[in-house]
Computed example of a mutant assay.
Amino acid sequence: MNKIAIIGCGGSGKSTLARQVATILDLPVTHLDSLYYDDQWNPLPQKEFAARQEKLVVHDRWIIEGNYASTLPIRLRAADTVVFLDLPAITCLWGIAQRRWRYRGGQHADVGVYDRITWSFVRYIAGYRRTMRPRVRQLLAEHAPHAHLVTLTSRRQAKGFLARIGTGR
């Protein structure tokens, strides 16, 4: 596992898992929210965002976490491992509530969090498995058939995954 894409619904724990895996495997981590937004929460133009990812994936070792389905094929084509956090909506909603409590909103580049909760974001999370999961699975099939896919459907499975890679099993 040298090139790892971590994807999943908002609040699923992508940033946390990325930091933990990075520590265990000594890999550099890029949080796409930190790349996409500036200090005033302004997004990059789409072409520039894609170009920055193209530059990242040519490196020999990395973790890139974040969804951004429009640029997901860039990461999937280059990844040797994809970790898909496919957690229930209630777990993800609880995750964003905990994040809000911890960080009090805003962008936190040091931890890869762009914490801006809106009703459209809540609706996105609530409908992720119905609307986005099929699209993600299609993108995985098209752009990452070569990659090892790890699908985690609970926080307990995520902890088990960390334990396995920590012991080399």
Rank of each mutant, 00 (worst) to 15 (best):
N2H: 13
N2M: 09
N2G: 11
I4L: 07
I4T: 04
I7W: 00
G8I: 01
G8W: 00
S12I: 00
G13K: 01
K14S: 02
S15H: 03
T16M: 01
R19K: 13
A22N: 05
A22L: 05
A22Y: 06
D26A: 10
D26W: 00
V29T: 09
V29F: 06
H31R: 07
L32S: 04
Q40M: 13
W41S: 14
E48V: 08
L56H: 13
V58F: 02
H59T: 13
D60R: 09
W62H: 02
I63A: 04
I63E: 02
G66I: 05
G66M: 04
A69Q: 10
S70I: 09
S70H: 12
T71P: 06
P73H: 04
P73W: 06
R75H: 08
R75E: 08
D80Q: 10
V83R: 08
D86C: 09
L87E: 07
L87P: 03
A89C: 02
A89W: 05
I90H: 15
R99L: 06
W101P: 00
W101M: 07
R102S: 06
R102N: 06
Y103R: 08
G106F: 02
G112W: 03
V113P: 00
D115L: 09
R116H: 13
I117Y: 02
S120T: 15
F121H: 09
R123H: 12
R123Q: 14
I125N: 07
A126L: 14
Y128K: 09
R129I: 07
M132Q: 11
R133D: 03
R137H: 06
A144Y: 05
T153P: 00
A158Q: 14
A158E: 13
K159L: 15
G160K: 14
F161V: 10
A163P: 12
R164C: 14
T167N: 15
